[in-house]
């Protein structure tokens, strides 16, 4: 069942982009849109959008870089580990949960390391990869999405995003404990 679901999704993912292109441009042709001219007209905004993001992303990433390089994460882990031990979350996976919203490449490295030391099919290995798959890099998305339209006052987006991250991590611990628990 899972296998079937997986292969169906894999096929859809593989053909999705060519299909998007075909359907969109083909439909344009049917509707007598001047496809080439309209495409180029839209595409010329690509550069501006990318450049607009730079200051926001620099601000976000250099702060995250300083935080990570300082080793402050160890201190936060030491403070939080008694709490997470209570809910049955292994101490090894706490740094991953904390890093997940901050850094995509950093949390990917941590996940890989946890699976290397504990084995990918161990409880910690499954939990680590589930945690990685249960959320996105909130701070990066915030900087890029809001940066592209010059939003400086992000209002409740960050707290809501972090609440989502928290529940993503808790959900991962809950389901992996039930299905693969020790």
């Amino acid at each position: 069942m899972v296998e079937l679901f997986r292969s169906v999704i894999n096929i859809i993912s593989a053909i999705a982009i060519p299909m998007f292109i075909l359907v969109f441009l083909g439909w344009g042709l049917v509707k007598k849109v001047k496809v080439y001219e309209v495409f180029v007209e839209g595409a010329k905004d690509g550069f501006n959008t990318a450049v607009k993001i730079i200051p926001y992303l620099v601000a976000m990433l250099f702060a995250i870089g300083i935080f990570r390089a300082s080793g402050a994460m160890d201190v936060v882990v030491a403070i939080l580990s008694p709490v997470t031990n209570l809910i049955g979350m292994p101490a090894e996976t706490l740094p991953l949960a904390l890093l997940r919203p901050l850094s995509g490449s950093g949390s990917m490295g941590l996940m890989t390391e946890l699976m290397k030391t504990n084995g990918p099919d161990s409880f910690i290995g499954v939990l680590a990869s589930t945690m990685y798959g249960s959320s996105e890099t909130t701070f990066y998305i915030l900087a890029v999405y809001f940066g592209s339209v010059g939003i400086k006052n992000t209002r409740h987006a960050l707290p809501a995003g972090l609440i989502a991250d928290l529940f993503g991590m808790l959900g991962a611990v809950f389901i992996v404990r039930i299905l693969f628990g020790v």
Binding site: F24, V35, V38, G42, T49, A50, I53, L61
Partner: peptide
């Protein structure tokens, strides 16, 4: 940060172009 931002230029342009056509065609 700059590398990531500038790396977006290509895919941004591609998808903005396709979307513009989709918009014009009413899709």
């Amino acid at each position: 940060a700059v590398t990531i931002s500038l790396g977006l230029i290509g895919v941004m342009a591609l998808w903005l172009g396709i979307m513009k056509v989709g918009e014009a065609a009413g899709l």
